[in-house]
Design a protein around this nucleic acid. Structure first.
Lengths: 116, 116
DNA sequence: GAAGTATGTCGCAAATATACGACATTGAAT
DNA sequence: ATTCAATGTCGTATATTTGCGACATACTTC
Protein backbone atom coordinates (compact mmCIF):
# COMPACT_ATOMS: atom_id res chain seq x y z
CA UNK A 1 0.00 0.00 0.00
CA UNK A 2 2.29 2.71 -1.17
CA UNK A 3 -0.49 4.86 -2.52
CA UNK A 4 -2.83 4.69 0.43
CA UNK A 5 -1.91 7.02 3.22
CA UNK A 6 -1.80 4.28 5.78
CA UNK A 7 1.50 5.46 7.19
CA UNK A 8 -0.20 8.52 8.62
CA UNK A 9 -2.20 6.45 11.07
CA UNK A 10 -1.45 4.78 14.37
CA UNK A 11 0.34 1.46 14.26
CA UNK A 12 -2.56 0.10 16.25
CA UNK A 13 -5.05 1.33 13.66
CA UNK A 14 -2.97 -0.05 10.83
CA UNK A 15 -2.66 -3.40 12.55
CA UNK A 16 -6.38 -3.71 13.11
CA UNK A 17 -7.24 -2.68 9.56
CA UNK A 18 -4.69 -5.11 8.15
CA UNK A 19 -6.36 -8.03 9.85
CA UNK A 20 -9.80 -6.69 9.00
CA UNK A 21 -8.77 -6.56 5.37
CA UNK A 22 -7.75 -10.19 5.57
CA UNK A 23 -11.28 -11.02 6.70
CA UNK A 24 -12.85 -8.65 4.20
CA UNK A 25 -13.58 -11.37 1.68
CA UNK A 26 -16.06 -14.18 2.30
CA UNK A 27 -13.70 -16.68 0.70
CA UNK A 28 -11.07 -15.99 3.33
CA UNK A 29 -13.62 -16.22 6.11
CA UNK A 30 -14.74 -19.52 4.63
CA UNK A 31 -11.17 -20.78 4.42
CA UNK A 32 -10.56 -20.06 8.09
CA UNK A 33 -13.82 -21.72 9.08
CA UNK A 34 -12.98 -24.71 6.95
CA UNK A 35 -9.55 -25.08 8.49
CA UNK A 36 -11.09 -24.77 11.95
CA UNK A 37 -13.58 -27.51 11.17
CA UNK A 38 -10.96 -29.95 9.89
CA UNK A 39 -9.44 -32.21 12.46
CA UNK A 40 -6.56 -33.06 10.26
CA UNK A 41 -4.56 -30.43 8.43
CA UNK A 42 -5.93 -30.14 4.98
CA UNK A 43 -4.16 -29.33 1.77
CA UNK A 44 -5.43 -27.43 -1.19
CA UNK A 45 -8.56 -29.43 -1.76
CA UNK A 46 -9.92 -26.41 0.06
CA UNK A 47 -10.42 -25.25 -3.48
CA UNK A 48 -12.83 -28.11 -4.08
CA UNK A 49 -14.99 -26.79 -1.26
CA UNK A 50 -15.20 -23.26 -2.56
CA UNK A 51 -16.90 -21.86 -5.65
CA UNK A 52 -13.62 -20.46 -6.92
CA UNK A 53 -10.83 -21.70 -9.09
CA UNK A 54 -7.81 -23.32 -7.54
CA UNK A 55 -5.67 -20.37 -8.55
CA UNK A 56 -7.89 -17.88 -6.80
CA UNK A 57 -8.04 -19.96 -3.65
CA UNK A 58 -4.28 -20.24 -3.69
CA UNK A 59 -4.05 -16.47 -3.79
CA UNK A 60 -6.40 -16.08 -0.85
CA UNK A 61 -4.30 -18.61 1.04
CA UNK A 62 -1.20 -16.56 0.31
CA UNK A 63 -2.84 -13.45 1.67
CA UNK A 64 -3.74 -15.21 4.89
CA UNK A 65 -0.26 -16.68 5.09
CA UNK A 66 1.32 -13.27 4.54
CA UNK A 67 -0.31 -12.12 7.78
CA UNK A 68 0.72 -15.38 9.44
CA UNK A 69 -2.91 -16.14 10.24
CA UNK A 70 -2.41 -19.54 8.68
CA UNK A 71 0.67 -21.63 8.10
CA UNK A 72 1.50 -24.14 5.45
CA UNK A 73 3.90 -27.02 5.74
CA UNK A 74 4.91 -28.98 2.71
CA UNK A 75 4.27 -32.64 3.33
CA UNK A 76 5.54 -34.48 0.35
CA UNK A 77 3.30 -33.69 -2.54
CA UNK A 78 0.54 -31.97 -0.63
CA UNK A 79 0.66 -28.85 1.52
CA UNK A 80 -0.83 -28.91 4.96
CA UNK A 81 -2.40 -25.64 6.04
CA UNK A 82 -3.34 -24.91 9.61
CA UNK A 83 -4.58 -21.97 11.60
CA UNK A 84 -2.16 -20.01 13.73
CA UNK A 85 -4.36 -20.20 16.78
CA UNK A 86 -2.05 -18.19 19.00
CA UNK A 87 -2.10 -15.26 16.60
CA UNK A 88 -5.83 -15.61 16.11
CA UNK A 89 -6.32 -15.36 19.84
CA UNK A 90 -4.21 -12.21 20.00
CA UNK A 91 -6.17 -10.75 17.11
CA UNK A 92 -9.38 -11.64 18.85
CA UNK A 93 -8.25 -9.67 21.87
CA UNK A 94 -7.37 -6.71 19.69
CA UNK A 95 -10.79 -6.72 18.10
CA UNK A 96 -12.46 -7.10 21.46
CA UNK A 97 -10.56 -4.13 22.85
CA UNK A 98 -11.57 -2.10 19.84
CA UNK A 99 -15.23 -3.01 20.08
CA UNK A 100 -15.34 -2.40 23.80
CA UNK A 101 -13.78 0.99 23.29
CA UNK A 102 -16.35 1.67 20.58
CA UNK A 103 -19.40 0.48 22.48
CA UNK A 104 -18.62 1.66 25.99
CA UNK A 105 -18.21 5.25 24.96
CA UNK A 106 -21.18 7.40 25.84
CA UNK A 107 -23.39 7.24 22.81
CA UNK A 108 -25.47 10.22 21.91
CA UNK A 109 -28.11 10.13 24.58
CA UNK A 110 -31.31 12.07 25.09
CA UNK A 111 -29.46 14.56 27.27
CA UNK A 112 -26.95 15.31 24.55
CA UNK A 113 -26.91 18.14 22.13
CA UNK A 114 -28.05 15.96 19.28
CA UNK A 115 -30.46 13.08 19.41
CA UNK A 116 -29.19 10.44 17.09
CA UNK B 1 -20.00 -6.25 -5.72
CA UNK B 2 -21.49 -7.71 -8.82
CA UNK B 3 -18.26 -9.06 -10.11
CA UNK B 4 -17.03 -10.67 -6.93
CA UNK B 5 -18.58 -14.04 -6.29
CA UNK B 6 -19.82 -13.13 -2.88
CA UNK B 7 -23.26 -14.55 -3.56
CA UNK B 8 -21.82 -18.04 -3.54
CA UNK B 9 -20.98 -17.86 0.14
CA UNK B 10 -22.98 -18.15 3.33
CA UNK B 11 -24.96 -15.14 4.43
CA UNK B 12 -23.04 -15.39 7.69
CA UNK B 13 -19.72 -15.27 5.85
CA UNK B 14 -20.85 -12.37 3.72
CA UNK B 15 -22.06 -10.46 6.75
CA UNK B 16 -18.79 -10.90 8.60
CA UNK B 17 -16.70 -9.94 5.60
CA UNK B 18 -18.84 -6.88 4.95
CA UNK B 19 -18.15 -5.53 8.41
CA UNK B 20 -14.51 -6.54 8.16
CA UNK B 21 -14.23 -4.60 4.95
CA UNK B 22 -15.64 -1.56 6.70
CA UNK B 23 -12.78 -1.83 9.20
CA UNK B 24 -10.24 -2.63 6.52
CA UNK B 25 -8.98 0.93 6.27
CA UNK B 26 -7.16 2.70 9.10
CA UNK B 27 -9.10 5.88 8.44
CA UNK B 28 -12.37 4.16 9.21
CA UNK B 29 -10.93 2.59 12.34
CA UNK B 30 -9.73 6.04 13.36
CA UNK B 31 -13.12 7.56 12.69
CA UNK B 32 -14.85 5.04 14.93
CA UNK B 33 -12.30 5.55 17.67
CA UNK B 34 -12.67 9.29 17.37
CA UNK B 35 -16.46 9.11 17.62
CA UNK B 36 -16.13 6.83 20.63
CA UNK B 37 -13.83 9.29 22.36
CA UNK B 38 -16.09 12.28 21.80
CA UNK B 39 -18.67 12.91 24.47
CA UNK B 40 -20.71 15.12 22.25
CA UNK B 41 -21.63 14.11 18.76
CA UNK B 42 -19.15 15.58 16.40
CA UNK B 43 -19.64 16.79 12.89
CA UNK B 44 -17.27 16.72 10.00
CA UNK B 45 -14.37 18.36 11.72
CA UNK B 46 -13.40 14.74 11.94
CA UNK B 47 -11.63 15.63 8.76
CA UNK B 48 -9.47 18.08 10.67
CA UNK B 49 -8.24 15.24 12.85
CA UNK B 50 -7.26 12.99 9.99
CA UNK B 51 -4.49 13.29 7.42
CA UNK B 52 -7.01 13.17 4.59
CA UNK B 53 -9.01 15.64 2.63
CA UNK B 54 -12.52 16.49 3.69
CA UNK B 55 -13.89 14.80 0.60
CA UNK B 56 -12.16 11.54 1.34
CA UNK B 57 -13.28 11.55 4.95
CA UNK B 58 -16.82 12.17 3.79
CA UNK B 59 -16.61 9.10 1.60
CA UNK B 60 -15.37 6.97 4.47
CA UNK B 61 -18.22 8.27 6.58
CA UNK B 62 -20.71 7.29 3.89
CA UNK B 63 -19.28 3.77 3.82
CA UNK B 64 -19.69 3.41 7.55
CA UNK B 65 -23.16 4.89 7.33
CA UNK B 66 -24.12 2.50 4.54
CA UNK B 67 -23.55 -0.37 6.97
CA UNK B 68 -25.40 1.56 9.66
CA UNK B 69 -22.36 1.39 11.91
CA UNK B 70 -22.65 5.12 12.37
CA UNK B 71 -25.55 7.50 12.03
CA UNK B 72 -25.68 11.11 11.05
CA UNK B 73 -28.32 13.58 12.06
CA UNK B 74 -28.46 16.99 10.45
CA UNK B 75 -28.39 19.63 13.15
CA UNK B 76 -28.76 22.94 11.44
CA UNK B 77 -25.61 23.56 9.47
CA UNK B 78 -23.51 20.79 10.91
CA UNK B 79 -24.05 17.06 10.83
CA UNK B 80 -23.81 15.09 14.02
CA UNK B 81 -22.37 11.63 13.61
CA UNK B 82 -22.63 8.99 16.28
CA UNK B 83 -21.84 5.34 16.67
CA UNK B 84 -24.61 2.80 16.46
CA UNK B 85 -23.58 1.08 19.64
CA UNK B 86 -26.29 -1.56 19.51
CA UNK B 87 -25.15 -2.71 16.10
CA UNK B 88 -21.51 -2.54 17.15
CA UNK B 89 -22.28 -4.82 20.05
CA UNK B 90 -23.99 -7.31 17.78
CA UNK B 91 -21.03 -7.16 15.41
CA UNK B 92 -18.70 -7.69 18.32
CA UNK B 93 -20.58 -10.86 19.20
CA UNK B 94 -20.36 -12.06 15.62
CA UNK B 95 -16.63 -11.54 15.54
CA UNK B 96 -16.21 -13.21 18.90
CA UNK B 97 -18.16 -16.24 17.74
CA UNK B 98 -15.99 -16.42 14.65
CA UNK B 99 -12.74 -16.16 16.54
CA UNK B 100 -13.82 -18.70 19.13
CA UNK B 101 -14.77 -21.08 16.38
CA UNK B 102 -11.38 -20.47 14.78
CA UNK B 103 -9.30 -20.81 17.92
CA UNK B 104 -11.10 -23.60 19.74
CA UNK B 105 -10.80 -25.99 16.85
CA UNK B 106 -8.12 -28.58 17.31
CA UNK B 107 -5.01 -27.04 15.85
CA UNK B 108 -2.44 -29.28 14.25
CA UNK B 109 -0.95 -30.90 17.25
CA UNK B 110 2.12 -33.09 17.72
CA UNK B 111 -0.06 -36.18 17.41
CA UNK B 112 -1.41 -35.07 14.09
CA UNK B 113 -0.35 -36.12 10.67
CA UNK B 114 1.48 -32.88 10.01
CA UNK B 115 3.39 -30.78 12.46
CA UNK B 116 2.74 -27.16 11.66
C1' DG C 1 14.04 -41.40 -16.29
C1' DA C 2 9.02 -40.65 -17.74
C1' DA C 3 4.42 -39.72 -16.43
C1' DG C 4 1.26 -38.00 -13.31
C1' DT C 5 -0.37 -35.14 -9.50
C1' DA C 6 -0.50 -31.29 -6.24
C1' DT C 7 0.99 -26.55 -5.79
C1' DG C 8 2.69 -22.13 -6.56
C1' DT C 9 3.68 -18.12 -9.73
C1' DC C 10 2.97 -14.97 -13.76
C1' DG C 11 0.37 -12.21 -16.56
C1' DC C 12 -3.80 -10.33 -17.89
C1' DA C 13 -8.70 -8.36 -17.66
C1' DA C 14 -12.31 -6.60 -15.08
C1' DA C 15 -14.02 -4.67 -10.84
C1' DT C 16 -13.32 -1.85 -6.56
C1' DA C 17 -11.19 1.12 -3.52
C1' DT C 18 -8.70 5.39 -2.55
C1' DA C 19 -8.00 10.18 -2.86
C1' DC C 20 -9.03 14.70 -4.12
C1' DG C 21 -10.48 19.07 -6.65
C1' DA C 22 -14.49 21.39 -8.40
C1' DC C 23 -19.24 22.10 -7.99
C1' DA C 24 -24.02 22.04 -5.84
C1' DT C 25 -26.79 22.51 -1.70
C1' DT C 26 -28.38 24.09 2.53
C1' DG C 27 -28.82 26.70 6.65
C1' DA C 28 -26.89 30.71 9.32
C1' DA C 29 -25.74 35.45 9.70
C1' DT C 30 -25.42 40.03 8.29
C1' DA D 1 -31.37 39.17 -0.56
C1' DT D 2 -26.47 38.29 -0.19
C1' DT D 3 -22.65 36.26 1.74
C1' DC D 4 -20.43 32.68 4.24
C1' DA D 5 -19.60 28.29 6.30
C1' DA D 6 -20.46 23.19 6.56
C1' DT D 7 -21.59 19.23 3.86
C1' DG D 8 -22.53 16.14 0.29
C1' DT D 9 -22.01 14.68 -4.65
C1' DC D 10 -19.69 14.15 -9.18
C1' DG D 11 -16.02 13.30 -12.08
C1' DT D 12 -11.59 11.51 -12.53
C1' DA D 13 -6.99 9.61 -11.90
C1' DT D 14 -4.46 6.12 -9.74
C1' DA D 15 -3.87 1.98 -6.98
C1' DT D 16 -5.43 -2.36 -5.42
C1' DT D 17 -8.30 -6.46 -5.42
C1' DT D 18 -10.42 -10.34 -7.65
C1' DG D 19 -10.50 -14.12 -10.68
C1' DC D 20 -8.65 -17.23 -13.82
C1' DG D 21 -5.94 -19.65 -17.56
C1' DA D 22 -1.35 -20.95 -18.81
C1' DC D 23 3.00 -22.13 -17.27
C1' DA D 24 6.69 -23.65 -14.03
C1' DT D 25 8.06 -26.48 -10.01
C1' DA D 26 8.50 -30.35 -7.18
C1' DC D 27 7.69 -34.67 -5.44
C1' DT D 28 5.89 -39.47 -6.06
C1' DT D 29 5.44 -43.61 -8.53
C1' DC D 30 6.10 -46.77 -11.91
Amino acid sequence: MTYAKTAAFTEEQQQLSRVAKALAHPARVAIIQFLAAQKTCISGDIAAELPLSRTTVSQHLQELKALDLIRGEIDGLTVCYCLNTELLQRVHQQFTAFFIEATSGAACGPDDACAC
